[in-house]
Design a protein around this nucleic acid. Structure first.
Lengths: 291, 291
DNA sequence: CATTAGATATGAAATTTTTGAATGACATGG
DNA sequence: CCATGTCATTCAAAAATTTCATATCTAATG
């Protein structure tokens, strides 16, 4: 089946009723076209075209073959169009893996808006804290906080979110209010996963402190909850703790200092994305930046 | 439309559910296959396959594309089969240009037999003495006596036919019986077209004599008729004059000598012939030799 | 845990394909 | 009747693709 392309060329020649015309239409030297058709005829073992120097006419075999080829080429065009529709008209199921708390707090309103914008898209979200295996699981995209580890994957930054230190008033009463970063060494610092250092910044200086915590956990919601239960100091994005701040359950610690900003990324297995995914990522990027 | 071939490869990969398997099936290095599919995906702008190192699965787009491609490849195979049927099953209209008298005398019985052998073939014969323009006129084959002049065409020898000299008894009574070739100079020698020499052969010696005739004509039947009307000596194939010999209207002249044998050729515009033409030429070659 | 198999990447050599100019043929119009 | 422009084909040089060998990565296997 190495002559499929030549079939398309043959169709063009028949349609143009001339090699030159077809060559111009395709944008190909007519010499190539001539040779390609000859090759096709040779592999078929039959003449398809009667060539007079001035005109070409179909042979009996050519007539039959042309009918077939036309259908094939039309089918191919259809397939092409159908795919390019996938590529331009956002529709279908969008499967995404999302981090739990970030999604609930930051992304929920955006997703709602996006869903309104593209009624053709159906959503299948998996909220999880684990770094899903995009290669094996059929996710179109994963949103993660932090840097991607696997270099095979394509990561697009969506937003950079500043973080601050928070603790409950009662914890601070009990353990004392730290006055400078170094004081944190004597505090219970609740970090996500196994992060053992915090980087702080006051606009001029950057300082790294190593933190020790009795808790290792992978849930943002959970460490916030622990903080409200007076268990320690957390480094967190603003909005996540907005409610707790408003209600007084948490309060900013070391207010001149801020934590290292974390970045949210959209991660995909490939750059060749259907429209639905492209639009989703683009939308998030545009709107998350302003949050 | 430069990716038709890749579509066929894609179908193979999906069918084999593996690059290696497909590569083996096609007989192509899997590296090429891999690159080819990647290129296809790139031109489409969409991933077709989810690759895990161990397995491949279709993406949503791949699924849709595969359905289409399978149909296209199947269509192509069908077209191929249909043509190869033309190539092997003799059928259709056989358009041939034939020389008048040779066909009536020599070929008629063969054609009758051939027609019986291949009921699927319909015949469209044009009996003419002119050398038809095979390039411009849609003949599948032309049968001609003598050597082809145009080297563009493909000539296949069918048979070599000996010729002898004949004249009517009354002509010989009137003009005298030639005893040796040189005597022909004093006779009316009726030649076809503008042949101005005859080559004679007696098994040992070859002699060329130049002939002059008051007639230039292009019909074998006509010069035979002229001969029976006592107008001169002719050089002719045996069977053409068989009836005239039997009835005594003509009689052999210089019986030890024979003319240069003429060859009958099948002439086609190309070597890429449908089965009907191939079989026709083959049949003529096999049977004309025995005549 | 080491091993195997499969997909992909890479780079150099080999092969095929494409190109662009040249060629030859033919119809048209002066 | 010849000049001219058009068109298919041919050919050698250039470009692209394929191949082959090699290497890497990862999942499944034992």
């Amino acid at each position: 089946m190495k002559f499929l392309n030549d079939m398309a060329l043959f169709v063009e020649v028949v349609k143009a009723k001339s090699f030159r015309g077809a060559a111009d239409a395709i944008g190909m030297p007519n010499s190539t076209l001539s040779r390609r058709i000859s090759a096709l005829e040779k592999t078929l073992g039959l003449r398809l075209l009667h060539r007079t120097t001035r005109k070409i006419t179909l042979t009996e075999a050519g007539q039959i073959y042309y009918e077939r080829c036309k259908r094939i080429v039309d089918e191919a065009k259809l397939a092409q169009e159908q795919l390019s529709e996938m590529l331009t008209q956002p529709s279908g199921v969008l499967r995404a893996s999302l981090p739990v708390d970030f999604t609930v707090t930051y992304m929920a309103p955006l997703i709602a808006e996006f869903a309104k914008l593209y009624p053709g898209i159906v959503f299948d979200f998996d909220l999880t804290s684990r770094w899903v295996d995009l290669v094996n699981e059929p996710f179109d995209v994963a949103i993660r906080i932090g840097k991607p580890e696997n270099s095979q994957l394509i990561a697009r930054p969506l937003a950079v979110l500043p973080t601050y230190l928070y603790a409950s008033p009662r914890y601070l009463d009990r353990s004392g209010e730290p006055a400078e970063p170094a004081d944190l060494a004597n505090h219970e610092c609740l970090g996500i996963m196994k992060a053992d250092t915090w980087t702080l910044h006051d606009g001029i200086n950057t300082t790294k402190i190593s933190i020790g915590s009795r808790f290792t956990l992978n849930s943002v919601g959970m460490i916030c909850r622990l903080a409200t239960l007076d268990m320690g100091i957390i480094m967190m994005m603003e909005k996540i703790v907005a409610d707790d701040i408003a209600s007084g359950r948490l309060r900013r610690v070391l207010p001149q200092w801020r934590g290292a900003p974390v970045s949210a990324c959209a991660i995909t297995a490939t750059r060749l994305l259907p429209a639905k995914t492209q639009h989703f990522i683009k939308f998030l990027k545009e709107h998350l930046g302003k949050v």
